[in-house]
């Protein structure tokens, strides 16, 4: 007989048969296990003797009240979803859809005319040309830039190249 089988039998409180007795006589570990198990068992019995607490007066009423209030909360939750929650969901969906359309629309097309972007380009070119004139790239300053270079030249500024 294997020790584990013997121990399982001892735990279940089976009557000690002659074969079990032979094993116990020859196996001190199983004898020790039996003693320890009996002590643990006595502890369990002692625990079982202690009486559980009694339900206090009005226990059922309190349970039913809690069940009632839980049902009301559930009902309120459902009403909220029906009345406000659904509208909120629709509004959120609309916002999300609008954002999606804005992101998906092409940069040119019927909703974004190319004229707008072209006029912006023209303005940029004009601005670039006038800046070049102001800095005197072609060696001839305009009147305003001459005044500016003279004034700067007196201060030893960057327009010294124009006075040379």
């Amino acid at each position: 007989m294997r020790c584990d089988t013997v121990r399982q039998m001892l735990e279940e409180g089976v009557e000690i048969s002659p074969s079990l007795r032979v094993h116990l006589d020859s196996c001190s570990a199983c004898r020790e296990y039996l003693r320890s198990w009996q002590a643990v068992r006595a502890g369990f019995v002692a625990l079982g003797v202690e009486a559980p607490p009694e339900p206090s007066i009005g226990f059922t009423t309190r349970v039913m009240r809690r069940i009632g209030s839980a049902a009301e909360e559930l009902q309120f939750g459902q009403q909220f979803i029906d009345q406000i929650g659904r509208r909120f969901v629709y509004a959120t969906l609309m916002v999300a859809l609008t954002l999606l359309l804005v992101l998906l629309l092409p940069s040119s097309g019927p909703f974004r005319s190319s004229g707008v972007s072209e006029s912006v380009l023209v303005q940029t070119q004009v601005a670039t040309v006038s800046n070049e004139q102001i800095l005197g790239v072609d060696g001839v300053d305009s009147g305003d830039s001459a005044e500016y270079s003279t004034a700067s030249g007196r201060n030893g500024g960057p327009a010294m190249r124009g006075s040379q």
């Binding site: 002590a39 643990v40 006595a42 502890g43 369990f44 019995v45 002692a46 625990l47 003797v49 202690e50």
Partner: peptide, 10 residues
Amino acid sequence: DKLAVGDLVW
């Protein structure tokens, strides 16, 4: 003692 063992087992 049995109560004590019960306490220990608990």
